[in-house]
Design a protein around this nucleic acid. Sequence first.
DNA 1: TGGAGGAGGTAAGTTTCTTACATATTTGTT
DNA 2: AACAAATATGTAAGAAACTTACCTCCTCCA
Lengths: 287, 287
Amino acid sequence: MNSFNILQQITSALESLNRSERKVADVILSDPQAATRSSIATLAKAAQVSEPTVNRFCKRFNTAGFPDFKLNLAQALASGVPYVNRNVEADDTADSYSPKIFEATIASLAYAKEKISPAVVNRAVDQLIQAKQILFFGLGASGPVAQDAQHKFFRFNIPVAAYDDVLMQRMVAAASGTGDVIVIISYTGRTRELVDIAELARASGATVIGITAPNSPLARHCTVVLDVEAPEDTDVYMPMTSRIVHLTVIDILATGVTLRRGPDFLRHLKAIKDSLKETRYPAEPRV
Amino acid sequence: MNSFNILQQITSALESLNRSERKVADVILSDPQAATRSSIATLAKAAQVSEPTVNRFCKRFNTAGFPDFKLNLAQALASGVPYVNRNVEADDTADSYSPKIFEATIASLAYAKEKISPAVVNRAVDQLIQAKQILFFGLGASGPVAQDAQHKFFRFNIPVAAYDDVLMQRMVAAASGTGDVIVIISYTGRTRELVDIAELARASGATVIGITAPNSPLARHCTVVLDVEAPEDTDVYMPMTSRIVHLTVIDILATGVTLRRGPDFLRHLKAIKDSLKETRYPAEPRV
DNA sequence: TGGAGGAGGTAAGTTTCTTACATATTTGTT
DNA sequence: AACAAATATGTAAGAAACTTACCTCCTCCA
């Protein structure tokens, strides 16, 4: 991977640049989009430095030269990953905070996309496909994620349930056994109760799949861990992007299970979907 | 905007290209990433055509020339928007379906980001901030979304509830009145029951905010409609990306309400968050 | 079968980028 | 304070990349 987002690199290196390079950086940051379209001569003139200075600037950021630099810049801009501090600020209006929230969400998905290990996904799907019963556990903001997962997996006609309170989770974990798969969803992986419950479930012989932070206490008690790294806490004291990544991981698991089931199974899903038709107003013709 | 995604344009224009240009297109599509790094000479050689042919190819796609073309290409690649048919296929493995799912999710968020109207967000926040009581309604896959919203808005110490079954929704809608805000979440906007419920709620004097498809039957009965356009049904008979967009819209509404409440309120949120500390294992030092 | 029009190539010209080298500026040392 | 060393920046030439103008060849139709 492309050593993530050259714009951020520039921003964070600003202090350590010397005078001329600083001028170049300022010009680029003031309008990165324009920078991608301009020639080295234009940019040098705008920054009031010589062309080789711009070239050296590019090399400092591990690019082959100016054209390569522009390419990286273009990609950084297109990736939707914000380059300056794009946290929501107290004086933001709807114009500014809604794109910020979309961007932050997109950025964490892009990050998770790179980080997720297909091998681990496969192992999780292996377990799910063999399960006699699947149980989804989540607390707080992860409660609805567990519900959502139940809603998805219910269609596989395997017994499936979701629990969002500690007492039920504990009882169910204790009562579980070989062939049961418990999927625990936790952003931090540091909720004591859930760690206990994972331990309990393992002791009873159940398989535990964790959708949680890598190397967390919870992760250590799981049979399979789907790492979802906890990004910095950019939101206003509420879990926002994390649960969306969790949901996407659930989608991936559901897709994995669907594909393993093969084409006959797709027909079964279609039947379920069709059964909803009558509850709906007919679709209107597209304009 | 950049007349979205040059790779898709190339793919769809494939048929209409003449022999040499077709060769160029093939080389580019076979490894677009490589194309962004190569010179016009390299690419011409790879496609076994002359350099001007490549140049003409670029101009055909409304770019100024080869460098500009490469820039567009780089952005298309980085945007995460898939360029070929990136639907999950029956023979996909975890290597291929997990990135596809991430990409599809990112693409719908990117789309929604452009489509959402800050003015409408503002009107929705206006309603929510004045609400005596907020109620979130969702059925099926939108049930968990409503739960999630409840979980978020609960922190605002306004009375808030979520309902995911039709009977309760109907009763609550009938019992509602002025000052109550009902947020109805529906992907299609064509579920008969929910349309009835919206009508009922309006008749009782409640404000109805819809997070649903534009111009749908449901949308017509709402006080404020947050459009979330229904993308083509790319997933395997399950709602996937739609509910993630809905959740993000909820995040935006919650953020809007938080900001309107002002700085004192942030302290209140922090207190709630801190209250969870004791239920956790301490964070481990970062490596 | 010949001519018109399009497709594609050649080669020269132009722009853009890079390198080598020279000059200036800063920093540290005595 | 003054000099040396290291670093920073610019100049100019050369190389690479890109574009344009023009020419040839092929195809298709009368």
